[in-house]
Design a protein around this nucleic acid. Sequence first.
RNA 1: GGCGGGUUGGCGGAGAGGUUACGCAGCGGAUUGCAAAUCCGUGAAGACCGGUUCGAUUCCGGUACCCGCCUCCA
Length: 471
Amino acid sequence: MTTIRLRNTRTRKVEDFDPIDPTKVRMYVCGPTVYDRAHLGNARPVVVFDVLYRLLRHVYGPDHVTYVRNFTDVDDKINAAAQARKAAGDPRSLEDLIRERTEETIRWYHDDMDALGALRPTVEPRATDYIGQMIGMIEGLIAGGHAYAKDGHVLFRVRSYKDYGKLSGRSVDDMIAGARVEVAPFKEDPMDFVLWKPSDADLPGWDSPWGRGRPGWHIECSAMSHELLGESFDIHGGGIDLQFPHHENEIAQSACAHPHGDFARVWMHNEMLMVEGKKMSKSLGNFFTVRDLLDQRIPGEVIRFVFLSTHYSKPMDWTDRRRQDATATLKTWFRMTDGVPKGEVPVGLVDILANDLNTAFSISKLHELANEGEYSALKASMSLLGFPDAEQIDWFRHGAGLSGAENLAEHAEILHELLTKWQDLRNARDYAAADSLKQSIEACGLKLSAGTVPSAEPTEDFDPAKLEALK
RNA sequence: GGCGGGUUGGCGGAGAGGUUACGCAGCGGAUUGCAAAUCCGUGAAGACCGGUUCGAUUCCGGUACCCGCCUCCA
């Protein structure tokens, strides 16, 4: 059997993966807080751990892997979104508004992640369905001396867990010296973090031994992973930004609540996403969602390809250039594998993925399969990496994909239609009609180019009104 | 301030202590309504300074620079 090797953040080493029970491999990945569309950065862990999930299924069998990814549907950002709508005059109750918002966001999330080719996890628990387990866990922590109630709050006593800070390589004393911690009157120690907090009448709340309130961030993952995967499970994943404090706190809670378990044995973290060399942020104006890209007719598999071309442990740069390269490569591969029977995944490729998920190297191997004419193997390999079969999609047959020019994005639909038609006419060797169509498009002030993917570049004479008139 | 990641050819991006990464672009050629697609061939690298070694881009140390987390945003 293939030995999978994974980098464990806890030990800072790449280790042989040795599941507790090979017939029941268990993985937990931190999912989204459902208050808005997922941005591109949110999608990276989804794709990274989807590849791991596929690899685990390939090695241990599809029925022997349990993948849990939560929806955090209780959070102050969600409350704020609902309160804003209520303030704007919506007559419905806060609870109804919250429910509507979280349900809608979960639908969006599914739509967007499905488009990236991510398999649905085995279980997708919602935090609000596990409030009882959270309360039970908090009670246990208090009984064990690891937490204390004060003024309607319950706090975790960080000093009661000697390994606190081990995952992220921090010491409690150093962090306090850094003085960047919230000092609150109800805290024994500045590093103590909230397990439960009181809710006033304007906030959602649940009855608890400490009064009506709601859980703090962190406890939901500890409670749900315990309920669904047990005291000890194999892999816990998420973005590197979650390493501290989220995962550190999860470990502290779970280790103290279940001292006989190991909690998660392997901790995996993906590095961050950047856009054109910079962190994605609203202030830089380079912030966008997965849906924004899909709406620009960028296929989900192209986004996936760009993600996989960088190892998960390195920052990944989303650039328009890489998007174009990925489009061209996938287009070639889909043409090669269209209608070809699916063969076997080469052992060498599985070994490459098993070596700490080296997706970037695996892509070079796919290039080699393509160069050698091994199209059946290429097709199977693409499937393992989560790409659709050529027969399931059709953009590669005629074109699609636009130049990334920002000022064309809002005309994506009409341009896509026109470019597709142009390509189809050329494919049909109807050059008279193709050239005539080209002339009418270029009359709008666009320059067409028959590249790997037909594209349109705006000139200084670009007139959007004329373009829309071509509809 | 604390912790962590990175620096490879024009661009993106890997593996391996000694042998071609790979892709894109470029260049030469074939083919082709096409500015395309396809096919054949081809040049080009390892931030800086030391150390270990018969030999390092690959191991070790230092320097410089870049980036992220520690704070609501993944």
